[in-house]
Amino acid sequence: MDLQDLRKLEHKRRVRYGYMWALFCAVLWGLWYLPGTVVWVLNPFDEMYGEIAAGSGDSMALIITAVLITAFNALTVILALMVWNGVLGKFGEMKRTLKQFKPCSKWFFLASIFGGPVAILGSFIAMGFVGGAFAAVAALMYPVVGSILASQWYGEKISKRAATGIFFIIIGGFVIFGGGLLSELGTGNVPWIGYMGGLMAAVGWGIEGAIAGKGLDVAEPDVGLTLRFLGENIIWWIIAVPLLAIAGFPMVKYALLAFEPLTMMVLIFAGITFGFCYVTWYKSFPLIGVGRGQGIGNLYGLFAVVFIILFFGDIPSWTLLLGGAFCLAGSFTMFSEDTSGLESLRGE
């Protein structure tokens, strides 16, 4: 083998690593839906929902409970990430990166605003006011926002082929959630705030990816991600939860009740899956770009439905097979792309 072949091989391997990370992200994100679904029926969140619903209505109860669940999710995620960074010996690098607030860490704090209160809360609002299927479909649009921003803002290359792949994966998601989507929208009067939530999810995660891509130019993915969750914890625990408590919602009471073994176990499972889904997401960006990383990450829709079927024993409908076929077609379109033009992900 000569030098050129070796170089090509090494380059191919880099791209393959990037796709592998993105695929892991999709699997873990799909897995997260198990604890993410179960936690709602566990106490104290179940009781909390009931109490707020009695006073302020179901939709409000859903959002307020979502804030507390998301806050706990962020807390267990950062615990998982601390262990991860400790194992990798990256605390030193974390301190160095944190100190460079202006050139570097500010991007990760900004990413946490878009990923946390905008995207996750938006997703819950869409779920509460329209329905779960609508929320899932709306979130599927985020790679479109992410790849357009990354290409306009810092010239990330996005080939026609990659765009086609992303498009197919989105279509697949639409088909998977299509039935539920139609019945949710068919009920007639959907409040505008539900659509707003859907928009927040797509735009929030898209912007988060593009901003993170910018910060990752000059930072380590593992470290950058931990700073992003540090930001999210500050937002929920120092700002949102106290504000809601002052507004009269029973935040503190139920937060203290969350320390039961079963609830904690489910929350820790949620933290591990969500945390490592983000680790792999951020690791894929420098290797294959924000657009491709998010496109493959979108397979979470398929994985979520598959895992829910496996674990809860729901009966799969034919739309899952058809949608899954679209997702696979889209992924292969991207995996099989000739990557020799991707030596650098940015245009000259």
Binding site: L3, L6, L216, E220, S344, L345, R346
Partner: peptide, 26 residues
């Protein structure tokens, strides 16, 4: 371990277009 992880930072910088590879040898 650190040697490889530092080298990976270089690979990321190159893939992000901040560095370019101009020569390789075995």
């Amino acid at each position: 371990f650190y040697r490889d992880s530092i080298n990976f930072d270089l690979i990321e910088l190159a893939s992000g277009g901040m560095l370019k590879g101009i020569e390789s040898k075995v």
